[in-house]
């Protein structure tokens, strides 16, 4: 009995080998498991490859560019300049104006969208006549190409052309009216999307619960705040998260409505101008990275502070 523990274990293992148990224990993955894993990896392969190729690799590349001078107008003067581009951007009033404009559009837009979206959701959920009609028409703004809608608003407010244009001023050439119209265009297009997400939440509120609440003496207003809203809070947060991130990326509407004139550029717009018009890839990339980081912070804040559940996070279905 001088055998070391390891030797003893080996001996024991050998003993068990005889009846085949160890063989099974060691071979942890059964045929079925292995086939399943293989198929799983094969099926996600192409999607993962494309997402990596188009999103992951380029963002790393963008980060690299942002550390370089990379001004296409002076291609020979390229050099590695560490965080100089970030310093330039972060000390530029243009960037901070754009940042302020973007935040303004995001916050005001998302708030209006939430309120109007909730109203529209309630209408779509509760209407006793023409439900299909309402839902179909509500989808139109969602489905329409943003650029098309933007042109419609632009022409509507263009002096001497549009049905909304005032007699003797050009709203799209002034800062505040422009911002107002940009927000209007954003809100118009995305309220229906918001409303659909909220409506899905409303559909999950059991009718019986509302009836019970009304038997308990809650009026419609109280029922809404004390029963419906707490129950659909997850839906509200998810919708709000998506819209906030989306609003922060605002580009199409501003491009068409004002082209960023009168300091109405969003961060995406100034990044675009630096990249494509100014051909300053270093500065543009630094802006891109900053936008990427801000987006991350917004998403993180939502998930951290509001506990917004990421859709599909419950991907593991129970068998």
């Amino acid at each position: 009995m001088t055998a070391t523990p390891t030797a003893a274990a080996a001996e024991a293992a050998e003993d068990r080998m005889d009846d085949g148990t160890t063989e099974i224990a060691r071979q942890r993955h059964t045929d079925a498991k292995r086939a399943e894993r293989k198929l799983g990896l094969m099926l996600v392969g192409p999607a993962v490859f494309i997402m990596l190729a188009v999103a992951a690799y380029p963002i790393i590349y963008a980060f690299w560019l942002s550390l370089n001078k990379a001004d296409l107008r002076q291609p020979d003067a390229n050099e590695f300049i560490w965080f100089d581009n970030y310093v330039t951007v972060l000390s530029s009033p243009i960037w901070w104006t754009a940042f302020g404009v973007t935040m303004l559009i995001t916050i005001v837009g998302a708030t209006l969208e939430l309120i109007l979206g909730m109203l529209l959701a309630i209408v779509m959920h509760r209407t006793i006549v023409g439900r299909g009609l309402v839902r179909t028409s509500a989808l139109v703004p969602y489905a329409i190409v943003t650029v098309v809608a933007a042109f419609s608003w632009r022409f509507a407010w263009t002096q001497g052309l549009g049905w909304l244009a005032p007699e003797n001023s050009a709203p799209l050439t002034e800062f505040w009216p422009s911002i107002g119209i940009i927000i209007l265009a954003e809100v118009w297009k995305t309220v229906p999307f918001m409303a659909l997400l909220l409506m899905a939440g409303l559909a999950l509120v059991p009718e019986d619960l509302l009836k019970a609440a009304s038997m308990d003496g809650a009026n419609a207003w109280k029922r809404f705040w004390m029963v419906t809203v707490p129950l659909i809070k997850p839906a509200i947060l998810v919708a709000l998260l998506f819209r906030t991130l989306d609003a922060f990326r605002v580009f199409d509407n501003i491009f068409i409505l004002t082209s960023g004139s009168n300091q109405t550029s969003s961060v995406s717009m100034v990044a675009y101008s630096n990249l494509i018009r100014g051909l300053n890839l270093g500065i543009g990339s630094a802006m891109s990275v900053l936008i990427f980081i801000t987006t991350g912070i917004i998403a993180f804040a939502f998930i951290k502070f509001f506990g917004a559940a990421a859709p599909g996070s419950d991907a593991e279905g129970k068998r």
Partner: peptide
């Protein structure tokens, strides 16, 4: 036959 590891 031991079929622990066999697929259905």
């Amino acid at each position: 036959q031991v079929v622990n590891d066999k697929a259905p």
